[in-house]
Design a protein around this nucleic acid. Sequence first.
DNA 1: TAGATAGTTAGATAATCATCTAAATAAAGG
DNA 2: CCTTTATTTAGATGATTATCTAACTATCTA
Lengths: 91, 91
Amino acid sequence: MSATLVFKALADPTRRSIIDLLKEKDMTAGEIAEQFNMKKPSISHHLSTLQTAGLVLSERSGQHIIYSLNTTVFQDIMMWMMNVSGKENEK
Amino acid sequence: MSATLVFKALADPTRRSIIDLLKEKDMTAGEIAEQFNMKKPSISHHLSTLQTAGLVLSERSGQHIIYSLNTTVFQDIMMWMMNVSGKENEK
DNA sequence: TAGATAGTTAGATAATCATCTAAATAAAGG
DNA sequence: CCTTTATTTAGATGATTATCTAACTATCTA
């Protein structure tokens, strides 16, 4: 897990919205793209960024590619954050 | 709190290292700069980015400017993350 | 008030990024 | 096989970013 890749991925509002969508249910690339005022290749690129960061997983199903959240990585990042904001209390 | 600004700020390894330093103790801009193989203006710029995101606070003390962590913002981001990775369990 | 020290601001540059259009790949169905 | 549908890849462009040097501002002290 690269914290840099994860935070870069989370630094874009469109990508965070995609995460919010996938929080509710798995979706195909097309279904995701429908939700945004943006061309499909742009969304595809965002999905690729999220996947490289490990935040989402994809699986082909016939013509479709289904994207889902990978919450493991969120856990790791939360660990780092808790460490940072937790140490504060020891000062 | 702007999630975009916070995640952008956290997306840089130098800035995360600064946070790790401030986790241990408050430091002046100069003390922070000493720890990096980078010119002072670059560190000053990183500190400004962290401050704009609300992740650090600064206070002048004579010639020095003392930087400290603001853990409130980390709490907010963790809330969002817990929501994302928590909803997963309800599916 | 002049000189030294601490830090920021300004301006330049090279690299990265978000988005678009056009073209390519993959699978399904006639 | 040929066409349609789903999605990605390639290539271009404008915007943002990280870093540097040089110049500026603020504070202390002799």
